[in-house]
Simulated scan of single mutants.
Amino acid sequence: MTIAMIGATGLVGRQLWPLLQGRQDVLVLGRRPSGAPLEKLGTMEEWPGLLRGERIDTAVSTLGSTRKAAGSWAAFEAVDRHAVLAFAEAARAAGARHFLLVSSSGADAHSRNAYLRLKGEVEEAVAALGFERVDLLRPGLLLGQRSDRRLAEGAGQAVAPLLGLLLRGPLDRYAPIDAGQVAKGMAALAGRREPGVYRHHNREIRALAH
């Protein structure tokens, strides 16, 4: 049985796949090489077909963009909704019992904010696919060195120490968190057998990472 993954070249994903590789074979689906030993490349639309014939136990998505980086809302939705859900459906068809998804703090299918509403809707759609276990990670602002330029997130990282001081207690879930901690938290969750849908915010993610 294999772990299938999308988003392996991103901020969390490129730190996650080496952690998973030591336990099981990790099959990375992507548009460009990630360095993973087992990899299939193609367009996002081709990813579901690349899973045909595979036996998957666990599926992981660290895929994500922003409206600005994608260039339009339609392009953003193609990544964060359609590509993620098509992968999840294909992984479930390939036998996956466990799905792990990097979502966002504040994700809510009923939010007035379009970004948070989309994230919440994707969470609900994944949970409805019939996986035995779903882990939804909802980190705050991700800290780390990105390969692409996201000016708004770069500004956020510059003030991250101040935000960390201000966002305490119940607001901690919105505080900045290092992408490496999210990767370690996901690695700790991979392979867990307890059924159900679990949501993990910053505090839970940090605990898992240690």
Rank of each mutant, 00 (worst) to 15 (best):
S104P: 10
S111E: 10
L85T: 14
E77Y: 02
W73H: 11
L101G: 08
A107N: 13
R97C: 00
E89Y: 13
R117Y: 02
A75G: 04
A94M: 02
L100P: 03
E89G: 14
R112L: 12
S105F: 11
R97D: 04
D108Q: 06
G120P: 12
H82D: 15
A88H: 06
S72F: 10
L101R: 08
A114E: 14
K119Q: 09
F99W: 06
A94I: 01
A69K: 15
Y115C: 02
D108K: 02
S72I: 06
H82A: 13
H110R: 15
S104E: 12
R97V: 01
E89Q: 15
A91Y: 07
R92D: 02
A93S: 10
L85G: 10
Y115L: 01
N113F: 15
W73N: 12
G95M: 02
R81I: 02
N113T: 12
F99V: 03
A86P: 06
G106T: 04
A90R: 06
A91V: 03
H98T: 05
A91H: 07
L101C: 12
R112T: 05
G95V: 02
S103E: 02
L100Y: 06
L116M: 14
S111Q: 09
R81E: 10
R67I: 14
A75P: 06
W73T: 10
S105T: 09
D80I: 00
H110T: 13
V102K: 04
A94F: 01
V79P: 03
D80T: 00
A109E: 11
K68S: 15
S111I: 03
A78S: 10
R117M: 08
A107D: 11
V79K: 00
A90F: 07
S103R: 05
S72Q: 09
L118E: 07
A94N: 03
R92Y: 03
R92N: 03
